[in-house]
Amino acid sequence: MFEAKLIQGAILKKILDAIKDLVNEASWDCSSQGMSLQAMDTSHVSLVAVQMKADGFDKYRCDRSVTLGMNLSSLSKILKCAGNDDTITLKAPDDGDKITLVFEAKNESETSEYEVKLMNLDSEYLGIPDTPYSVNVKMPSHKFQRICRDLQQIGDAVTISCAKDSIRFAAKGDLGSGTVNLCQTASADKPEDSVSISMQEPIIQSFALKYLNHFAKATPLSPQVSLSLSPDVPLVVEYSITDDDGSDFGYIRYYLAPKIDE
């Protein structure tokens, strides 16, 4: 039996909003450690990895590891039926072919129950080494979202370059060009507004903005986003997931293969 209860059901709604347009079908791997998912988009250019730790749930029971393959747009449609303040409980019997979602409104007697069909998916998992990166940037997630959205007006790709204590996002296209330069901020008055840059070596890499704009759909999950870059390897864009108390619940990480000048 698998059962996971989340008082702040809105977190699960936000996670689905952040992945459903990138991957259509994926499997949740549920173990005593928590729930995780890894899936590539159909073109194999990007990958999303989600982790929700067992102790972040308000109740978590997983007698034996289960893989819950599902259509994410179906799950997302069902989650739209849950209110933002609802408690969400996921339940799956060990050998069932569906998952049950129970939504409970706060301070009300209303409970709704939905079922989503499970699928057997041939998931391909990639082993991603945990290596240090040349550049790590932490910045406000809304700023990253804005930059990606603005630069997609100009061109299809963004060139990210980092030198000393600044990071530069540049795009060019038929209408002209645009650049956004961000410098490291000194003050830590409002940590969520800060830009911090840690650089081992200067870097310049290009990435498709279409995917970065998909990744930015995770913005409501976290006030800060972390970008990790090294020469000629995929970019990592990470949003940490915290609950209302600020406790670490897990993360959503996106990997994006670079565009390389041949």
């Binding site: 194999h44 990007s46 990639l126 082993g127 991603i128 293969a257 390389i260 000048d261």
Partner: peptide
Amino acid sequence: DIEQRILPSFYSSK
């Protein structure tokens, strides 16, 4: 020419 790479050329399957 600028070429879009794919992830399996960087990471192996597990």
